[in-house]
Design a protein around this nucleic acid. Structure first.
Length: 493
RNA sequence: GCCAAGGUGGCAGAGUCUGGCCGAACGCGUCCGCCUGCAGAGCGGAUCAUCCCCGGUUCAAAUCCGGGCCUUGGCUCCA
């Protein structure tokens, strides 16, 4: 079964056919680095990450570019606050490293390139000139605006009609524009006081214009918001790419404008497939920086760990909106625990002397085969991660049943199950089953816990359950879960 | 106002493109049982859905068509 996905451009499910049958050019609209990332951003990252992993799994080589917008008035507005320094670039750098740290902790595969706007101003200027040459843009007072009337397809991505649209950009631009819907490719001068004051919630009287400016054929100025992604996508991938992914809140105007300016400049289709990751909602509203209802990635990782966070985010298909609440996070923790325990049990059982190479459990083998197919079908069906995860859970059930139901285990069957967990769980979903001892100090900790549990066993044998339970409770507080089994106590961190 | 995406059990969330296997998945929760000194995990079972409403098409509709109601998002910065 081949991969098919829902293309925002057409609104339909389409078979995925990249221009080159062996490789995929993927661009993801990254962050404007003016704050720490929150779970809503992580949702998009994790889904793009899994898309990347799946594309590679089915045999494509993937070239993945993910930008950082480090030139933006909101970044300028942050300058001089919270010890971040006065320079736009210093503020941006601070948040870039914060975001990179978050991405690493979420176990995201690296993109091939993380281009920044500040390093691509020459490419941006070249692209604007190409748009001007095609007479799809005009200069006005040192700024350059895209002429939406010159591009008949304008609005087709978001399904909007030009006549129905309200104006784009701030009020003071209007006088310079032919059409209120025209948008800036290049803006003259530094960021103005009003814009900074607005994002900083300050009085414009006390704010200086700021932000870096660059020389251009139209004078000193700054690139517009939308042109950067077009320029960087072309610079690091191609004029025409396969997959352009971003948050659903970028459909209009950002992606609409990208298409217009790119295709006006090159005459080529900018991206064949547009995928949009839907929003994360909290209590009926979108999670966003401006609404102050967000949960940062760092908080989430600290509180529940990377695997449950991934489990949470992958438990809804990317195209649907998803609800965040304490309850849904708790559910994800439980889901992850069940999955990991299933994996652990399979590993332990396969390593035990009760695992026989001559034993064959048909039910287990059959379930594995079926669930591998189910997982593949789900992923090929527009990256249905929720459905794919259910295949993994079916496998957990089969493993548990197999181990509980007999004295001798099917060694080969268990190995197949483990391999399936690793291939799909680790490899595709990006979980880290085996990675519970990242700092290497667990070796000693394990010995100490084992020692403690031996003491506890002696207490239990002597009937001193209070002491025994006390030990169990105490080490549980330290993060070690003890389970008494027929084969003696077992523990996990 | 315009545009888009949705409305499925206590919760969350698949299934809707490609109508029948959906008497509705996976999971969380709750209850009971097995196991256990207890707890947990696991297993077994139970609980739990007129698939937003009305009408239509069809032998057959959660799925298709028409109308309505509601929610969220975009139209200003946003993954």
């Amino acid at each position: 079964m081949a991969l098919s996905l829902t293309n925002t451009l057409t609104g339909e499910r389409e078979p995925f056919e990249p221009q080159d049958p062996d490789s995929v050019l993927l661009y993801f609209c990254g962050l404007t680095v003016n704050d720490d990332a929150h779970l809503g951003h992580a949702r998009a990252w994790v889904h793009v990450d899994v898309m990347h992993r799946w594309l590679e799994h089915v045999g494509y080589s993937v070239r993945h570019v993910e930008n950082f917008t480090d030139v933006n008035e909101k970044i300028v507005a942050r300058a001089g606050t919270a010890d971040l320094g006065d320079a736009e670039s210093a503020v941006a750098l601070h948040y870039i490293s914060s975001v990179i740290e978050d991405m690493r902790s979420l176990n995201l595969k690296r993109a091939d390139v993380y281009p920044r706007v500040s390093e691509h101003v020459p490419e941006i200027i070249d692209l604007i000139e190409a748009v001007l040459e095609g007479e799809h843009a005009y200069e006005s007072d040192g700024s350059v605006y895209f002429d939406v009337d010159s591009f008949p397809d304008y609005g087709s991505l978001s399904g909007q009609d030009l006549d129905e649209m309200e104006s784009q950009g701030p009020e003071d631009e209007r006088a310079e524009k032919r059409n209120p819907q025209d948008f800036a490719l290049w803006k003259a001068g530094p960021v103005e006081e009003e814009a900074i004051a607005q994002h900083r919630d300050a009085d414009p009287e006390h704010v200086e214009p700021g932000g870096q400016t660059w020389d251009s054929p139209w004078g000193e100025g700054r690139p517009g918001w939308h042109i950067e992604c077009s320029a960087m996508s072309m610079a690091h991938l191609d004029e025409s790419i396969d997959l352009h992914v971003g948050g659903q809140d970028l459909v209009f105007p950002h992606h609409e404008n990208e298409i217009a300016q790119s295709e006006a400049a090159t005459g080529e289709q900018f991206a064949k497939y547009w995928l949009h990751v839907n929003l994360l909602e909290t209590e009926g509203e979108k999670m966003s920086t401006s609404l102050q209802n967000f949960f940062t990635v760092k908080n989430a990782i600290d509180e529940v760990g990377p695997n449950p966070v991934r489990m949470f985010l992958l438990s809804a298909q990317y195209r649907q909106s998803q609800t965040y609440s304490q309850r849904t996070i708790d559910e994800a923790i439980e889901r992850w625990d069940r999955l990991e325990r299933g994996y652990d049990r399979a590993v332990e059982a396969a390593d035990s002397p009760d695992a026989y190479t001559k034993e064959t459990a048909h039910a287990l083998r059959q379930t594995i085969e079926e669930q591998i197919d189910a997982f593949r079908a789900a992923m090929n069906d527009d990256f249905n991660t929720r459905e794919a995860l259910s295949a993994l859970f079916e496998l957990v059930g089969a493993v548990n049943e197999h181990i509980d139901g007999r004295d001798r285990y099917d060694y080969e069957g268990l190995r197949e199950a483990i391999e399936t967990f690793e291939t799909f769980g680790n490899g595709v979903m990006g979980f880290t089953f085996a990675d519970r001892s990242p700092d290497g100090s667990v070796g000693l900790a394990e010995e100490l816990v084992a020692e403690l549990l031996e003491v506890r066993e002696r207490e239990r044998e002597a009937g001193n359950y209070e002491t025994a339970d006390g030990i169990r409770e105490r080490i549980a507080e330290l993060g070690v879960e003890v389970q008494d089994t027929d084969d003696g106590p077992e523990f996990r961190f």
